[in-house]
């Protein structure tokens, strides 16, 4: 793609992001942005390192709980709260990562799922999380003493900035030499080892980065909704983020974002109308994606685009 088209496209998207809350309900947009960042962070593992984590809700939820608790119970402002939550998720990522990289392939997914369930049960029993009731009434407060986050529109631009910062970091990571090594591991782990790369170290770094950014998304979401519940740490949320990447397309940075917006919109539209039937629809989308739609929306569209452009050039 010529650079002008590419950067023109990015500028248009940015403009759309800035203008969107004038047309669409900002809280919905913020939710979508948080999940989009979550999905991007998750896809750093699935799409670029070839590791399917089925327990990413643990990081998302942990950051939300820590951020929410500190903002509510101590003098931490929203900025410091989000930072602490994010770092807590990163630290948890380091612990979990050290365990899970000991096994490969499908075991990796089962272990992440089981460890996330362990963390879920801990939050269910812990007193600071509020158990089944969740952590309620987290004050949004002021960022840097002068930005009032109680205003939805103001908060939206803060969330947009966090989202852009997070995804940019993912983008830079993927296109760095470090990202190339991750791709090499995905394609052929044995070969990466024989080339002298300390594969486990790279995997662990990718895992921690992914956990940290998932935490950033989770902590931000806690501030947006002013509450955190067990749902955020439940395996359903882990499944949702897998589906976002799969549906949008795991081969690109934009794929998970598209997937996140699609799923959040879908759940928003359907949950009033069909209630718990949403789970059935989500499951069915999973099955259809795996059977016929493995490169996702972005993957299919770019294949189509290349085919059309290719024909014209011939």
């Amino acid at each position: 793609m010529p650079n002008i088209v590419k950067y023109g496209g990015y500028s248009l998207l940015l403009l759309a992001g800035i203008l969107a809350p004038l047309v669409i309900y900002p809280v919905f947009l913020m939710k979508a942005l948080c999940f989009a960042l979550f999905a991007c962070a998750f896809n750093l593992l699935l799409g670029y390192t070839g590791l399917l984590s089925f327990g990413h809700a643990a990081f998302f939820g942990t950051a939300g709980y820590i951020a929410g608790y500190l903002i509510k119970q101590s003098s931490f402002g929203p900025g410091l709260g989000i930072l602490s939550g994010t770092l807590a998720a990163g630290a948890l990522g380091l612990v979990v990562g050290n365990l899970v990289i000991r096994r490969q392939g499908i075991y990796f997914s089962m272990i992440t799922l089981a460890l996330a369930q362990l963390i879920y049960f801990l939050y269910l029993q812990a007193s600071f999380t509020g158990g089944e009731d969740g952590l309620q009434a987290i004050p949004r407060g002021r960022l840097f003493w002068f930005i009032n986050l109680e205003n939805d529109l103001t908060l939206y631009y803060v969330v947009l900035a966090i989202f852009l910062g997070g995804t940019l970091l993912v983008y830079r990571t993927i296109h760095s030499p470090f990202g190339q090594v991750l791709k090499a591991i995905r394609e052929n782990e044995a070969r990466a080892i024989s080339l002298g790369y300390d594969v486990n170290r790279y995997k662990l770094m990718a895992f921690v980065l992914s956990a940290t950014l998932s935490g950033l998304a989770g902590a931000t979401k806690a501030l947006v909704f002013t509450f955190v519940t067990l749902t955020d740490a439940h395996w359903h949320t882990s499944g949702d983020v897998v589906l976002m990447s799969l549906l949008g397309g795991m081969g690109s940075v934009s794929g998970p974002i598209v997937g996140a917006f699609s799923i959040v919109t879908l759940e928003n539209e359907l949950s009033d109308k069909v209630g718990s039937f949403v789970t059935v629809i989500i499951g069915a989308i999973f099955m259809v994606c795996v059977l016929v739609f493995r490169s996702g929306i972005v993957g299919e569209v770019s294949t189509l685009y290349r085919r059309v452009v290719g024909q014209r050039e011939q």
Binding site: L52, G239, V242, L246, T279, V280, I282, G283, A284, I285, F286, M287, C289, V290, L291
Partner: peptide, 8 residues
Amino acid sequence: LFTFGLAL
């Protein structure tokens, strides 16, 4: 992933 969808 497929059997996860089936389970859901």
